[in-house]
Design a protein around this nucleic acid. Structure first.
Lengths: 196, 196
DNA sequence: GAATCAAACGGGGTGGTCCTCCATTTACGT
DNA sequence: ACGTAAATGGAGGACCACCCCGTTTGATTC
């Protein structure tokens, strides 16, 4: 799914280090897809054919590994934010994108939680990155929608994302969480009280 | 906080068993208040002065322990549901109660998640109990509010509770989650789109 | 191509978790 | 007081995250 995920090339890595980094990442991606964000690091290392110490050297914390694994997905989401701007209705654009955020989080168990956690206790150099990438993608959509009068004033992008992530978290273990999540998002967007 | 929490007296427990049951529960309450719902069972047993086997005999799964620990709090919430019916405005009553649900969940880290999980994979005899207690408390409030025209038709109590729990889960690790949670609940209730 | 050396490696250890067996102890009814 | 069934908890198995440190290996220089 993800092709060119590489380490940040501050100083070029030794070839074997780069190779192991990539193998760990691939194994982690598979394991997380299967077991969620609390997959066993030990097993990831085993499947990658490296010692556990190597995994811990490359990724000092579970959070660090999650960040890198999820980065590609987050980037896709940011792309999506640019795509939806083609919608002539900025309100629609924002809603479509929020829906995509929920859907994305639902199909990557633990992504939502990881993103939120990353907001305030991840590795500072890296931890906040995913969170801020998404936030800055969303803020543009929100501004346009706000100017179009489609959004109640005083609504912050952080609120919307927290809400979207909350819904994704809450529904990700449900039997058919996707439908449930969609319904809840619609409900939250429209409000519980009667309309117009 | 909780006084008379006792084992279900199907057949009267032996005195020592009852004593240990109570001590475990007290220790669990303290541990969960401090460390959240993923507190170490081993340490709970240690602090209760019993062997870990004893803990596991009384509470076959972590979920079972959580259910009992949280039961008192859930009962309080159900009481609250009866209290708010004094509010002449049924819509207000429901909102007030939902706010209490969020607040309660926020002050008992893990309660929200435990409740949701209990909805579909807890011990069948016991697991669904908290969930159904809350649901049936809420459904009355919802019906009254619906009849008063304060609630958009088609909104289910399950949706509202999932939303409330989702918000509580998402904000429970935030620095000042309570305020955040309250804002998000208000947002979800009023809707994101402009009013009236 | 050989020598060098820091960088990267991974086996194995530590200390933690959850959970189960089963020999021993204990409370209760008679 | 005694017999028995119930309750106990220590020891142990399987697993986990994380770290120390002796060994290997890739890059660089000659």
């Amino acid at each position: 799914m993800v092709d060119g995920n590489t380490a940040p090339a501050s100083r070029p890595m030794r070839a074997d280090a780069q190779r192991n980094y990539d193998r760990i990442l691939a194994a982690a991606e598979a394991a997380i897809a299967r077991d969620g964000a609390d997959a066993s690091l030990e097993e990831i290392a085993r499947r990658a054919g490296v010692g556990s110490a190597t995994l811990h050297r490359h990724f000092p914390s579970r959070q660090a590994l999650l960040e890198v694994v999820f980065r590609a997905k987050v980037e896709a989401l940011c792309h999506r934010a640019r795509d939806v701007t083609t919608d002539p209705d900025p309100g629609n654009a924002l809603v479509t994108w929020l829906r995509a955020v929920v859907e994305h989080a639902a199909s990557n168990r633990g992504l939502a939680a990881a993103l939120m956690r990353g907001a305030h206790d991840g590795d500072p150099t890296f931890g906040a990155t995913c969170h801020s990438m998404i936030t800055s993608s969303g803020v543009e959509l929100l501004e346009r929608a706000g100017q179009a009068g489609a959004i109640r004033p005083g609504v912050a992008i952080g609120d919307l994302l927290t809400l979207a992530n909350a819904i994704a978290m809450a529904t990700e273990r449900e039997p058919n969480g996707a439908a449930e999540a969609d319904r809840l998002l619609t409900l939250a967007l429209d409000g519980v009280h009667p309309l117009t």
